[in-house]
């Protein structure tokens, strides 16, 4: 019988909170660390396989159908899988791991509060400096589509995979776009968020992948699982579509 593959984040607070969340649904995930390998299983079941995968790799695993279910951040899914709506279902928003993707500029830019201000400053910046205003971020797809929607054109993205808040101080960038939960890091780096709404509000979410076929047995395991999480079947009904069904 084909096992239902569920991936949870492999480390840190996100892993702990995910295990806690499943425990509250009555699903006990036991992790054990043998040498450097993590493994996990759900007590009492054999037809669900738990995989521990880095949260940032879970989106791709879902998109390729190597896993059926996965817990990861909405920010990571939207950034890494621009066409996610066609292949993934947000089965459950988990109400933790909350963070906003925001656009931030130096605090002393007292003339900049809105995205309109940012646009105007970007135009001036390019005229004065001869190159486009630099935004450091690792969220390239999300920022490009957001700024296009907002009509901002005179910018360039600088790739920054970590310590993005420091990019302005070291003159690698003029503005940054990053995930923040409390805003404290931004404040400590003398940055302020612009715009009334963040670029994206994100939280940990349980995703379902429907890129591969669903054999009946696996579908029944899923129904059992969603039943334990006291969810109605509405969201997984799509799998009954002949397009996905193998039974």
């Amino acid at each position: 019988m084909e096992k239902l593959k569920l991936a949870i984040p492999s480390k840190g607070r996100l892993m702990d909170l995910t295990i806690d969340w499943f425990a509250r649904q009555g699903i006990e995930i036991n992790t054990s660390k043998i040498s450097r390998e993590y493994s996990a299983k759900i007590s009492g079941t054999t037809n669900i396989e738990i995989l521990l995968i880095s949260a940032s790799e879970i989106p791709k695993e879902l998109a390729t159908g190597r896993i059926d279910l996965g817990v990861t951040g909405q920010d990571l899914v939207r950034e890494k899988i621009p066409s996610w709506r066609e292949i993934l279902i947000e089965l459950k928003l988990l109400n933790f791991g909350k963070a906003d993707l925001v656009l931030a500029v130096p605090n002393f830019w007292v003339d900049v509060d809105s995205i309109d201000d940012f646009d105007a400053v970007a135009i001036n910046f390019r005229r004065k400096n001869g190159f486009r205003l630099r935004i450091a971020t690792k969220y390239h797809n999300l920022m490009r589509s957001y700024l296009r929607r907002m009509g901002v054109a005179d910018y360039q993205l600088i790739d920054s995979q970590g310590a993005t808040e420091g990019a302005i101080h070291s003159d690698r960038a003029d503005a940054i776009a990053d995930i923040t939960s409390s805003g404290k890091t931004l404040e400590a780096n003398h940055l302020k968020v612009i715009g009334e709404e963040p670029v994206l509000r994100s939280q940990a979410t349980l995703y379902l992948s429907h890129v591969t076929k669903w054999p009946l047995s696996k579908y029944q395991t899923l129904k059992q699982l969603t039943g334990m999480m006291s969810m109605n079947d509405e969201k997984i009904r799509v799998l009954q579509d002949t397009k996905f069904r193998e039974f």
Binding site: P106, N107, F108, V110, F125, I168, H169, D171, D174, H190
Partner: peptide, 8 residues
């Protein structure tokens, strides 16, 4: 509102 940093 400083510190002053960057190109502006």
């Amino acid at each position: 509102n400083g510190p002053i940093m960057g190109k502006r």
